[in-house]
């Protein structure tokens, strides 16, 4: 059977020590039995490694940062689409999702399909409103508080006992053992990611995650639980293993049924020693470890593309337990001419 040819644009080519999901998403698509994909990389910075991985990414275009505004981004995408005729676009950064969600209709008019959560779904799962989310959907979450001002730090003692987690609204999380450390992390995080900064109760236990895909009708198309086996100093999984954990899958199903989540998601949970699960974060996209799910038998990037194309997807029911991923670093050797080409013309 000949494979369908599709052109798919993907962001998140920053396959660094804090990796974006772009490259693993593409690897899933390239493993597809149904599609033959041409991959268009969309890069913000000119040293995102994926730009130079020519066996993974066919062509890369630089795109403007979300802060440049939606119109500028759409104009750039219109130009790229006039050349590449993109079928599906998969954004992979939390910080850009809002822009792409707001632009979904305009992109569709250009012939570019996406499969993203609704704005309401996206907004209500923010870290800053996690307590409300927990209450609304009956999910156990750690106590947390969004703070907008450094002076609020001094009143934390009323509500929290140390240590606490200090988190940025998009990325970064640090543990703080006293007021001074909270202050230091608050300044660092707020200057990088803006406000609010979230203070969260520290829950002791094992960090476990689920990668899942929702069809927007309340069904889980696929879900794979994983435990981080090796964590970098940035808190990123550098190795992980698939788990057999029915409670995590039930929790995922419960959240998807209640929210009718549309698109990829990563649930971050803490499993305490007495077997309780605390939801600490919901990332509104496929995570950088999604290729583990592909390796365990669930090609979620492929399923996401089919959903974006409006096709029915049979939910995955199984995956292999005990599959490991182990990340590694690798030096790409590139000629300066490639860097010059991208930096000068914005495409490579």
């Amino acid at each position: 059977m000949s494979k369908r040819k599709l052109t798919i644009a993907v962001t998140g080519l920053n396959n660094t020590d804090n990796p974006g999901p772009g490259i693993p998403v593409i690897r899933g698509l390239r493993d597809s039995e149904e599609f033959e994909v041409r991959i268009i990389g969309l890069a913000y910075e000119n040293l995102e490694p994926g730009i130079y991985m020519h066996d993974i990414v066919d062509k890369t275009y630089q795109i403007p940062y979300p802060s440049a505004g939606t119109e500028v981004l759409l104009a750039r995408l219109e130009y790229i689409n006039s050349i590449e005729k993109i079928d599906v676009l998969i954004p992979n950064f939390d910080a850009e999702l809002n822009t792409f969600m707001r632009s979904a209709d305009k992109l569709k008019k250009m012939g570019i399909r996406t499969f993203l959560p609704t704005l309401e779904q996206y907004e209500e799962r923010h870290k800053s409103v996690l307590p409300e989310y927990g209450e609304k959907y009956d999910v156990r979450v750690p106590k947390s508080k969004a703070i907008f001002n450094a002076s609020d730090i001094y009143s934390l003692n009323d509500d929290f006992t140390y240590p606490v987690m200090v988190k940025g609204k998009f990325y970064d999380a640090f543990i703080a053992y006293n007021t001074e450390q909270v202050k230091m992390h608050f300044n660092k995080i707020s200057s990088k990611w803006g406000l609010p900064v979230i203070i969260q109760e520290f829950v002791k236990g094992v960090e476990v995650n689920v990668v899942a895909l929702g069809d927007g009708k309340g069904n889980v198309v696929g879900a794979v639980p994983m435990r981080k086996q090796f964590i970098t100093d940035k808190g990123k999984a550098w190795a992980g293993i698939t788990l057999k954990d029915d409670k995590m899958l039930e929790q995922t199903q419960k959240i998807f049924s209640a929210t009718k989540w549309r698109g990829g998601m990563e649930l971050e949970l803490i499993k305490t020693n007495d077997g309780k699960y605390y939801l600490i974060e919901i990332n509104p996209r496929l995570p950088a470890w999604v290729y583990l799910a592909v390796g365990a038998g669930q090609n979620l990037p492929e399923a996401l593309v089919k959903l974006a194309l409006g096709e029915d997807v049979k939910p995955y029911e199984n995956y292999q337990v005990g599959k490991l991923f182990i990340r590694y670093s690798y030096d790409l050797i590139c000629d300066i001419a490639e860097f010059e080409q991208l930096s000068t013309f914005g495409e490579l």
Partner: peptide, 18 residues
């Protein structure tokens, strides 16, 4: 239940990943 034990003495707990 589910604990895998191989002849080599390798024990895998699929619920914890240990």
């Amino acid at each position: 239940r589910n604990i895998a034990i191989s002849d080599t003495g390798f024990v895998f707990d699929p619920s914890s990943g240990d």
